[in-house]
Each structure stands twice: as C-alpha cells, then as structure tokens.
Simulated scan of single mutants.
Amino acid sequence: MLKNKQIGFIGGGAMAEALIRGILNAGLVVPSQILVSDVSVERLDYLRGTFTILTTTDSQETARQSDILFLTVKPQVINGVIDTIAPVVSKSTVLVTVAAGVTISTYQNKMPGVPIIRVMPNTPVAVGEGMSAMALGKYATTEVSKPVAQVFSSVGQVVTVSEDTMDAVTGLSGSGPAYAFVLIDALTDAGVRVGFSRQTAVLLAAQTLLGAAKMVLATGEHPAKLRDMVTSPGGTAITGVHILEQNGVRAALIDAVVAATNRSREMGRR
C-alpha cells in the first residue's frame, strides 16, 4: 500500500522517531522513501545515522517531495509551519497532523482541497503499543486514509473517530498512560510496603497491568466479566476491590478523563 510512496516528516522529535522505527520494522517502506526535516542539525544527524533515512533542514523541500506528509511538531509552532508549507503542498499529498488541539479547519483554510487527517496518538507508540485515533477531513476518503492507518498500526492500534470526539480521545487514551503510570507507581509502593524490593514490585505491578490489558483485548470480554473471574467468594481479590470502591478509585478515574477532556477543549479554543 505504501509501495513507491515518499513519506515526509516535518519535525524530527520523539513521535517522528517512533513512527519511523515502526514503519521500517514493519517493512512498509525502505529508508530512502523517508525524508525528515527539522531545525536541529544534530537531531537530523541522529535520525540519519540511526535509520539511514534522508534528512533536510528545508521543510518546503520535504513538503514538495512527500506523498504522505506528517506534521510532527509542537502545537505552539504549527501555525508557522502551515504558513511555510502551504504554498508548496500538492492536492495529491495526504497531510497528517498529530498536533493536539489544532482542528482540521485550521489546515484546510490554508490548504484548500488537500486531504487532511488529524491523529491523536499516545506515548506508548514509542514501544509499539500505542493507541491512535484518526479523524478524516473533507477530502480524506477512507481509501486515502488506509496507508496512514497502516503507518499507525505499525506502532499499535488505530481507530477512526469523528473530529468532535478528539478532545475525548485526548482525555482517555491521549492522557491515559499518565493514569496507568500513577497506578503502577501506587501498586509498586504497595509492593514495597508488603515486603518486596522496589525492582521486584515494579515488575509485579507493570506486568500485571500489561497482562490484564492483553486479556481484555485478546478475549473481547467485558472487563467486569474478567474481574469476576478473579474475584472468588470471600477471597483476596474481592477484598481488595472492596477497598478500591470504598475509596472512590473508579469515580476518580472517570473524573480524571472528564477533566482532561474539558481541559483539551479549553486549550483548543485558545
């Protein structure tokens, strides 16, 4: 699907690196099909040395040459990038943006007729277990989006959503790794409290959450059903779950997602 496609990245930070690694590991393209531009020569040297891809400091050159162009820069600089590349982006180029809070219309107004796809990935793309949500612009058909979905599938899982749910995506999966890290940290402290070394406690906690998540995805069962399989009558697990419910852990997680979603909406209105 990506055969003979030139893939460009404007911005060579952690997100671009994760996507490049996923693309190459999956064998979707060869290194010579990837061109990255960045303001940092040192960063470009690193990416070129690590992946043997093409690099340049000229973002317009990257935009001109790309069949699929990823904007992997921070939201605060995105307007300047759009202004720079808009005159040279072809209507046959698929533009993919991962800038949080920046709407498709922001790009479309400057680049009419260009297929725009807005994506919210999360940080586990760095280890190939990311969750990415795509919203398609007016000119981005399902067929056009397939190669982009293939790229993000190389670093995790992908869903297509309507753009009006992107703030909710940010609140749930975009911010979600932070909630998971808090849980792992708390479970680790608990493990230390009951006698384990911190190293052992981290392993027990992190692998337990990883295994539980894999069970949900692999079985397709409702999480509550899987919980019931663990909580035998009068046993240890139901005793622990009771304490979690008493302390409002479930409500706190729901409130966290709602608050993060609302914060994303506020940031998008700036």
Rank of each mutant, 00 (worst) to 15 (best):
D255H: 01
S175M: 04
S40T: 02
S92A: 09
I68D: 13
Q6W: 09
K138A: 14
V258W: 00
A86G: 10
H242W: 01
S175H: 03
S59H: 02
T93W: 10
R250N: 04
L226Q: 08
S40A: 05
E143N: 10
L253W: 00
A16I: 09
I184Y: 05
G174Q: 12
T200N: 10
G240A: 14
G248F: 00
G211F: 05
A205W: 10
L183Y: 11
L217S: 14
K3Q: 15
G248C: 00
S90Y: 07
I243Q: 13
A252V: 00
A201D: 04
I243F: 09
A16K: 06
T93I: 04
A100R: 10
S90N: 12
V161N: 07
N25D: 15
N79S: 15
T52E: 15
G130L: 04
F9P: 03
P121K: 10
T84F: 01
T106L: 09
L71D: 11
I23K: 11
L183I: 14
D189A: 10
M111G: 04
G240Y: 13
G195P: 02
T219H: 10
V159M: 13
V88Q: 07
A218R: 11
R21H: 12
K146H: 08
M134T: 00
V127N: 05
A206W: 03
Q246W: 03
L47I: 02
I68G: 12
K146E: 14
I68A: 12
P31V: 09
G191H: 02
Q76A: 14
G80D: 14
D167W: 04
S145N: 01
G130E: 05
S66P: 11
V102L: 05
S175T: 09
A256P: 02
K225D: 15
G128C: 02
D45I: 00
T236P: 03
H222G: 01
T142E: 15
G268S: 11
V127W: 08
M111I: 11
V169L: 08
N25T: 07
V258G: 01
R227S: 12
L209C: 02
E221N: 08
A205G: 04
L69V: 15
V155A: 05
A63I: 08
M131A: 15
G101C: 14
V81N: 02
T97G: 11
T123A: 12
T142S: 10
R269Q: 15
I68E: 14
S90L: 08
V114E: 01
I20H: 12
D38W: 00
P87E: 07
T103V: 12
G130M: 07
